[in-house]
C-alpha cells in the first residue's frame, strides 16, 4: 500500500511540471487522431484552453493558423507550437514526443503484423477492398483541399499543370521542383493581381468559417 501511495505522490509531483503536463496531455490526445489532424483541433483546443488553461481562445486560433502555414501535419505543428510557447524548445520537444509516441508504436505493431500476415488469402481479400476505400479517402482529400486552394482560374491552372507535369515528366522532373514551381507561379500571379488575392483571401476566410464543423479528417 505504501508503495502505491508513494507512486501516487510521485505522480502528483511530476504533474506539477509543465513539461510533464505537456507530454501527458498530448500523449492522451494522440490516439484519437485517426486519419490525421483536423479531427484533433477541437480536442487540442479543449485540453489547452479549458482543461489546462495554457492559452486563451484567441491565442489558440493563432496557433492553428500558424500550424497550417508550416509544412507538416497540423496536429503535430500545433503541439510543437503550444509546447514552444509554454516552455521554449524543451516544451516543444515534450509536446511533440507526447503526440508522436502512441501513433509511432501503433504503426510499428501494425507494420509488424502486416509483414506476418500479408500473404494470407483472407488478408489479401480484405486489402483488395480496403485499397479501394483508401482511394475514396484520397479523392475526398483532393476535394477538401481543392475547395480551399482552387479559388480562381489561376489556381486551377496551377493545379492542372501540376497533375500534367507529374503524369508526363515524373521520370526526370522531381516532384519537389513542381512544388517550388507552384510557389513561384503563385508569387507571379499574386504580384500581378494583388486585388484578386485580397478577394480570394476573403473567400478563403468565408470558406474556413463555413467549414467549422470540423468534420475534416484529412490532412
Amino acid at each position: 500500500m505504501t508503495k502505491i501511495k508513494r507512486l501516487f505522490s510521485f505522480w502528483e509531483k511530476l504533474e506539477k511540471y509543465t513539461l510533464f503536463q505537456l507530454f501527458v496531455s498530448f500523449l492522451k490526445i494522440s490516439p484519437s487522431s485517426f486519419g490525421g489532424g483536423y479531427a484533433l483541433i477541437p480536442i487540442i483546443e479543449k485540453e489547452a484552453v479549458q482543461q489546462r488553461k495554457w492559452l486563451s481562445e484567441r491565442e489558440i486560433a493563432d496557433v492553428f493558423a500558424l500550424a497550417q502555414s508550416a509544412p507538416g501535419a497540423i496536429a503535430l505543428n500545433s503541439a510543437i507550437f503550444i509546447g514552444y510557447r509554454m516552455k521554449g524548445k524543451l516544451g516543444a520537444l515534450a509536446a511533440l514526443s507526447g503526440i508522436i509516441l502512441p501513433t509511432f508504436l501503433i504503426m510499428i505493431v501494425l507494420s509488424l503484423l502486416f509483414l506476418q500476415v500479408h500473404d494470407h488469402p483472407k488478408v489479401e481479400a480484405a486489402f483488395t477492398a480496403i485499397r479501394t476505400t483508401i482511394l475514396a479517402l484520397i479523392v475526398y482529400a483532393a476535394l477538401k483541399m481543392g475547395k480551399q486552394a482552387i479559388v480562381n482560374y489561376a489556381a486551377m491552372i496551377i493545379c492542372i499543370a501540376a497533375v500534367l507535369a507529374l503524369y508526363f515528366f515524373s521520370s526526370w522532373l522531381h516532384p519537389i521542383f513542381i512544388i517550388v514551381l507552384g510557389a513561384i507561379a503563385g508569387i507571379a500571379v499574386c504580384s500581378r493581381h494583388s486585388d484578386e488575392l485580397q478577394q480570394t483571401k476573403q473567400e478563403e476566410k468565408q470558406q474556413t468559417a463555413a467549414q467549422d464543423d470540423y468534420s475534416d479528417y484529412m490532412i
Binding site: A65, S69, R131, I134, L135, I138, V139, A141, A142, M145, G146, Q148, A149, I150, A154, A155, M156, I158, C159, I160, A161, A162, V163, L166, Y167, P175, I178, I179, L181, G182, A183, I184, A185, G186, I187, A188, V189, C190, S191, S194, L197, T200, K201
Partner: peptide
C-alpha cells in the same frame, strides 16, 4: 510573414500545386 505578399503568393501557388498532387495520388493509386 502573415502579411508578406511573397509569402501569401507562394502559399497560394503551393496549395494549388498540392491539390494537383493529391489528384495525381488518386491516379497512380
Amino acid at each position: 510573414m502573415k502579411n508578406n505578399r511573397y509569402w501569401q503568393g507562394s502559399m497560394f501557388g503551393v496549395r494549388a500545386a498540392v491539390t494537383g498532387f493529391i489528384v495525381y495520388s488518386a491516379i497512380i493509386f
